[in-house]
């Protein structure tokens, strides 16, 4: 067996890949070296056998369809405009829902401590020891005013149920708390007066949602119209393409 360098040379020679000078040099070696000639015959035989292999025809056609390669019909430019408007309007609609449900809660959470602070500090102006019971009643007042709201809430819409917790409602509660410190002319107890005034103020604040429903309706209409136009454009493009 010849070394691999010779085998590689013989293989290249068989394929006509050697330069004329290299071929001439190898041919002279082959004529004088029987082992080299035998190796060349082996390589040639292997190559010939492979070339004798019957060519197999494709058993079926491999032509491609548009679906196979994922080709899509060319859509008009307006399609992308409507697609953008649909996406943007949907985003805005989600934002309005989020704003209407989250914002009132945030303002409620911020208003309650303020109301408590106002009730304690505002009434304590010139009082000494005898004022303490009145102050204690004043600090409890916001809790008392919240109670009726809780009982009314189930009868109202979800939006309205959230509304009483707005800043205005808390401010109203604070006002009523301050009023509780001064005695009323008709002899009503301070707590009863607070509750009444709070109930009068609540319906106004309940009607105010951060984003009015008309905006949500308009956005919904825009989304539906854009989606419909997109569908029609796509359908006509596909029918033209076919």
């Amino acid at each position: 067996m010849k070394n691999f360098r010779d085998i590689e040379l013989l293989s290249s020679y068989l394929d006509g890949q050697l330069s004329p000078s290299d071929s001439a040099r190898l041919e002279s070696r082959i004529s004088s070296d029987l082992e080299l000639a035998s190796a060349l015959d082996d390589l040639r035989a292997a190559q010939s056998i492979l070339r004798k292999l019957p060519a197999r025809k494709a058993p079926r056609n491999f032509t491609l369809t548009r679906k196979m390669v994922g080709l899509k019909p060319p859509l008009p430019r307006s399609y992308s405009i409507f697609r953008f408007s649909t996406a943007f309007a949907t985003f805005l609609l989600m934002l309005t829902f989020a704003a209407n449900s989250i914002l009132p809660r945030i303002s409620f959470g911020a208003a309650k401590p303020m109301a408590e602070a106002y009730g304690m500090g505002g009434g304590g102006g010139g009082c000494d020891q005898p004022c303490l019971p009145a102050m204690a009643a004043a600090t409890e007042a916001p809790v008392a005013t919240e109670a009726p709201v809780a009982t009314e809430a189930p009868a109202l819409s979800p939006m309205a149920a959230i509304a009483p917790t707005s800043t205005e409602a808390s401010v109203a509660n604070q006002d009523s708390t301050r009023m509780a410190e001064t005695p009323t002319p008709d002899g009503q107890t301070p707590k009863a007066a607070e509750t009444e005034s709070a109930l009068q103020n609540q319906p106004q604040s309940q009607n105010e949602a951060p984003i009015p429903p008309i905006w949500q309706s308009s956005l919904s209409i825009i989304i539906l119209l854009s989606a419909l136009i997109m569908f029609l454009l796509r359908r006509s493009a596909i029918s033209k393409w076919k």
Binding site: F4, I7, E8, S11, S12, Q17, L43, A46
Partner: peptide
Amino acid sequence: IKSRLARARLRLRECL
């Protein structure tokens, strides 16, 4: 490629 072809032909001849 030259090297692979030479080796492949040699092995094929042996196998055949």
